[in-house]
Simulated scan of single mutants.
Amino acid sequence: MSNRILVFIAALLIVLPLFIVKNTEFAGTDTLAEEMIQQTAPHYEPWFHVLFEPPGGEVETLLFSVQAALGAGVIGYIIGLYKGRKRNG
């Protein structure tokens, strides 16, 4: 298989669920922590506000996954680079 086809399939797997699954609620630890704070200290005022609020939980999960994938790619590239230098030099 060509790399372009694999990249297209990967992108399709990322984007397709956003259009297929509607009205879902993915509650993460941030949401659960916020609910617990509201229960224990209802007058708590946050220190700062978010700069960007994703339109839904799915988008937030997607952004987190993309961030994790990019980080893993950078780490994998660096490990491969040093391993290649060690083998060749």
Rank of each mutant, 00 (worst) to 15 (best):
Y44G: 01
F64H: 07
K22R: 15
G56I: 00
M36C: 00
S65K: 07
F64T: 09
Y82W: 15
L62W: 06
A41W: 09
I5R: 10
N23I: 04
H43I: 03
N23T: 12
N88D: 10
Y44E: 05
H49M: 08
E58D: 13
A72F: 15
I75S: 08
Y77C: 04
A41F: 10
S65M: 12
G71K: 10
E34A: 15
M36H: 01
G76W: 02
P17K: 09
G71E: 10
H49K: 13
P55Y: 02
V59A: 04
T40L: 14
P17V: 13
G80E: 08
G89Y: 11
A68V: 11
Y44C: 01
V59D: 00
I37C: 00
P54M: 06
H43F: 10
I78R: 05
Q38N: 09
L62Y: 08
G84Y: 09
F19C: 10
E60L: 07
T31P: 00
R85G: 06
D30I: 04
K22C: 04
L13Q: 12
A11N: 08
G71V: 05
Q38C: 00
A11I: 14
S65N: 05
P46M: 02
E60M: 07
K83H: 05
Q39V: 05
G71Q: 08
F26E: 04
G28N: 15
Q39W: 03
V15K: 06
V66I: 15
T61I: 14
W47D: 03
P17C: 12
L62H: 02
V15Q: 08
Y82Q: 05
F8E: 05
A41E: 12
